[in-house]
Design a protein around this nucleic acid. Structure first.
Lengths: 189, 189
DNA sequence: CGCGCGATTGAGTGAGCTCAAGCCTCGTGG
DNA sequence: CCACGAGGCTTGAGCTCACTCAATCGCGCG
């Protein structure tokens, strides 16, 4: 629990959000993944591939040393199967964001981000619900690092969404979307 | 073999390069992965996630129906293990490109692309070799779709690399890099 | 109160896009 | 054998979206 860098071991995210980041030598940074409960955390079969894990919010983890998990995986094929499924899902998500980073405009990226968060965090996880309300798990700086934009651009796009009555924002963090359909229309796909 | 869209089955890429693409409704497109021999091709446990597979070059495949592979995977844990390893590698690659798409400049992206291709294609797969020579498996349009740029920008950056004597180009397709170190310096990381 | 941190807002700049023209190579048909 | 056209690539000119730099705001905390 807290914001330590938990590498060299496997963990299960019990609550909170963990960000996975990659950086360039001159300080530019990109968030390459967000892990929500109850995701796994860690990179089997390899000496951590230059990815840093950092808590984005208060986080509670359940972690094991590397060797233990690797032994468990050999013993129980079910575990490996579950890990494969999660990895495939992460790959799908990564590719979804490659599309956003490579081809979407700033406003489409922000809309897509809000929609993704809404779907992951909104407590009333009713997929049919046409509205959502949630706290952003990331600061503007983190959102910018996730979307490949600057803080200022993120802020301006949020302001525009608010001005268009697509979202409401309270305390800089809490977002309410009355009509998710209107948000979806702004995602570009 | 050829350039058909091979979905709904699993395949092994025997030779050539397959591009995985995602598109937006208005036609914008992004290449989200390249599969070289001897990669797997296909998406287990899911009804193909809005990703299209298309041959980038002449390709030869060895493919099986979905059901067969899924049965084989249940029978042999070794297969599932191998699939997990490849999937983890693809995830690493996808994240590498998220960094490029989100944070690298056009010239850094082109340099990174050339380096990636050199490492995958150069016949003399000697990792210690400090030079490489290879045919680009993609057209300028495909490179642009992979790097989140336009054809024109890709072309201009290649011209700049050529003008700086980092690469030589023959027939628009064949690239020679005399000093890979100089190319690496232009990747940003 | 005053400081620090995160966020917003404004003004000006520039990297990469759009639009447009021209080049090169190769295949096809006269 | 050459003319022609198509497709892929390059180059140029101008524009625009997102970036940079800078000022300001608001809030929480010592």
């Amino acid at each position: 629990m807290g914001d330590a860098e938990a590498v060299e071991s496997y963990s299960n995210v019990l609550s909170g959000v963990v960000k996975l980041t990659k950086g360039l030598s001159d300080g530019r940074q990109q968030i390459v993944g967000l892990q929500f409960a109850p995701d796994f955390l860690g990179r089997p079969f390899k000496s951590e591939s230059a990815i840093d894990a950092e808590a984005a919010t208060e986080v509670s983890l359940c972690s094991f040393p590397r060797t233990v998990i690797e032994r468990m995986m050999k013993a129980s094929p079910g575990l490996e199967h579950r890990l494969l499924k999660q990895t495939l899902n992460e790959l799908d998500e990564a590719r979804e964001w490659m599309l956003a980073l490579g081809r979407k405009t700033a406003s489409e990226r922000v809309a897509s981000f809000l929609l993704m968060i809404a779907r992951n965090i909104d407590p009333a996880a009713d997929p049919a619900a046409r509205s959502a309300s949630f706290d952003l798990p990331l600061t503007r700086a983190d959102i910018a690092d996730f979307l490949g934009l600057t803080i200022e651009t993120v802020s301006r796009q949020l302001t525009r969404l608010r001005a268009s009555d697509v979202i409401r924002i309270e305390n800089n963090r809490h977002v309410t979307v009355d009509d998710l359909g209107r948000l979806e229309q702004r995602c570009g796909d």
